[in-house]
Design a protein around this nucleic acid. Structure first.
Lengths: 235, 235
DNA sequence: TGGGCGAATATTGTATAAAGTTTCGCCTGT
DNA sequence: ACAGGCGAAACTTTATACAATATTCGCCCA
């Protein structure tokens, strides 16, 4: 009971039923267990989480606002299917915002943060070694999010959360080879630059990292989207 | 029937009951008819718009996601009260994003857009002349939004909508003098630069415009927030 | 046999009712 | 007179019932 009712503490959302649903569905999408275009029925999800449709609906609306779910009127919610144009916008926004975020991260550097970052790198390497693609894709997104948290800039953090979630879908849909989503090595270089408090290097590493991710994508004219999707879903 | 059911067109939300509520409340907040800290009771709003609490709740949750409403668990929804720290974050983000947006706007320039911009400037001048503070504050926000629409970058547009809405609250809470929120003259200079397709000038004008707005603010340590709020609400 | 119309079914949108929490007034006791 | 606590009222939260809309499947007809 003591752990349940916290009158004043504004914990983000933990132990909240709507948030449990939202985070569960988000994780499933980010780990590519739910593919773009998948229908997310309200009853279906409600039964999984033992919640009524009211709560499921709230969670789905939040996900829609984050851009990883589309809600079509009278038809339901579907995992979003970003177009190549969307993809270009997402990465352009990331190229604009993330260098600035890493700048702030350098300002906030501390032994505790360095520790956290290196612990994260270890997790990434471990997941990569054991070939756990789902954990890898999740962790590589969380790395960028971690840096945004480190920056202490809550607005950038909110924006980046959206961009990361969409990026995960984009990488699933449009990557050329079955390369790991983000090279762990790049992340290590970024951490090194942060540790050295070298803003210029940190910005540069972040930017080239993002460029490399986007370079791995196959973003052609939107007309051929359907084929590409069929390809992914069929595989 | 033709105008009502559009299966594929993703019109933002027009003629949707939830959106009517959201836009109504948003307008009230942006025009400073609802002050920061005001409680937004579900029954109260529902009665105004002739809607059930279900729809009101949906609208309020969307506004919470946009950052202009805070929802406190088991207590209800309140008009957000940005802290000075929030204010600094918002303007930093705007200084980062808006120069890039205006860059894109220059790329998209066309006679139709120039026309629309100048029509908007005329509206702003008119509102300023007749001393309509509410219309002025609304229109000055819409100017920035218009440029974001012109850029064709939907992600930047979404981000900027949030930033503008929060800016409106910030200006209300923290401006030094009762100066008009944004000088119409600055907007005119930005339009001129866009019309000349001069990206450098457009970026520079936008940046200095944002700097001037923030310079008009009184952003001290958060400790004194309460006094400031009392000041505004008492007046 | 293939296409199209139509009823049945399933799913979402909306409203209302039940349950839980907070707040505020009032009362009692010191 | 004042502090503390009890209790009722108001509100939010959650669940459920009802209405509207889309989809699906079967049947009929060409």
């Amino acid at each position: 009971m003591a752990a349940k009712s916290r009158p004043k503490s504004d914990a983000p959302d933990v132990s909240d039923r709507v948030s449990r649903i939202r985070e569960g569905v988000t994780a499933a999408i980010l780990e590519h267990r739910l593919l773009p275009g998948t229908k997310l029925g309200e009853d279906e999800i409600g039964e999984i989480y033992g919640a009524s449709r009211t709560l499921v609906r709230t969670a789905l609306q939040q996900l829609a606002h984050e851009g990883i779910v589309n809600i079509e009127k009278n038809r339901g919610a579907f995992v979003a299917r970003p177009t190549p144009a969307d993809a270009r916008e997402v990465f352009e926004a990331r190229r604009l915002i993330e260098p600035t975020i890493v700048d702030h991260a350098v300002d906030a550097v501390s032994p505790a943060w360095i520790n956290r970052l290196q612990q994260h790198l270890a997790e990434e390497r471990e997941a990569e070694l054991r070939g756990d693609a789902r954990a890898s894709v999740r962790l590589s997104g969380e790395f960028h999010r971690l840096i945004a948290e480190m920056s202490g800039h809550s607005i950038y953090l909110g924006f980046l959360k959206e961009l990361i979630a969409r990026s995960s879908l984009i990488i699933l849909l449009y990557r050329r080879h079955d390369t790991p989503a983000c090279g762990t090595a790049h992340h290590a270089e970024i951490v090194t630059a942060i540790r050295k408090r070298d803003k210029l290097a940190a910005r540069a590493q972040m930017l080239s990292h993002l460029n490399e991710i986007e370079a791995e994508l196959f973003l052609k004219d939107p007309a051929a989207d359907e084929l590409r999707l069929a390809d992914v879903l069929g595989a």
